[in-house]
Simulated assay, not measured.
Amino acid sequence: MTMILPSHIPVSRDTLQQRVAVRLRELLVQGNFEPGSKLNERELCEQLGVSRTPLREAIRLLVAEGLVVLDPGRGAFTPSWSKDDISDTFDLLGVLEGLAGELAAQRITAAELAELTALQHEMQAAYERRDLPTYYQLNARAHDLLSVAARNPVLRETWKQVNGRMHALRFRSNQDEAKWTKALDEHAQILAAMKARDGATARQLLEQHLRRKRDAVLKLYPVEPTR
């Protein structure tokens, strides 16, 4: 499957560091950096069209999200996960998303359900175009919407922290055609459970969904990553 990413992502010079963080987050999530690789500030400044000050402020924001790690004296790096780290984190994420789905099935509003339905149609369209970056953005919004619809602030904040660590790996898990097809079908089943207000099924589907992503990601790590 061929995926074309833009080589230059412009950022207006009058934007705040949050806007720079959005662009850098896209690069990180879309797999432009290998695990454990150093972020070259000069190259990123040129690519994003910004000075080092907003870039460094954006990097600090992404450190808080778990997308970047700082090594004193060496600089900023992408996280380097062990297979145990990946497995343990996805296992926890599956529990959190399963609980969110169960609660959301009972608490989701009509407007949120309509939005989730629209996202499913847009994901289908992105899949048919083989537009993986757009698909992932829509996919992430769908999962985020479920965490909101659960109406449990503690669950949502915990989910955001854990999910932030797995952003880039979740994106890569769909780069296999068969797995991407399966993931889209699973989302359709989750949507059906939401419409039926079937919390038990929603929980089961989401837990299975995350286990499959875990297994797909682990296959990308035949050896332990090192830096």
Rank of each mutant, 00 (worst) to 15 (best):
L146G: 00
A118H: 10
A105W: 04
A104C: 05
H121E: 11
A126W: 10
F171Q: 06
E97P: 01
L119G: 08
L116A: 11
L119M: 08
Q120R: 13
R107M: 03
A149K: 03
R107T: 13
A150G: 01
D176C: 04
H167S: 13
W159T: 10
G94P: 00
M123C: 08
A118R: 15
S147W: 14
T117Q: 07
L99P: 04
A110H: 13
R156L: 03
Q124G: 11
N139W: 15
Q120E: 10
R141S: 06
A110D: 09
A111G: 01
L155H: 00
A150D: 02
A168L: 15
G94F: 00
E128S: 14
R107I: 03
E97A: 03
V154S: 13
Q137L: 15
A110C: 07
A114V: 03
E97R: 01
L96M: 01
H143D: 05
A110N: 08
M123F: 10
R151T: 06
W159E: 07
A149T: 02
Q161M: 10
D176K: 04
A168R: 13
Q175V: 10
L145R: 15
G101A: 02
A100Q: 04
L132Q: 10
R107L: 04
T134F: 12
Q161H: 12
Q124Y: 13
H121T: 13
S147I: 11
Y127V: 09
L113I: 05
L93V: 04
L169V: 14
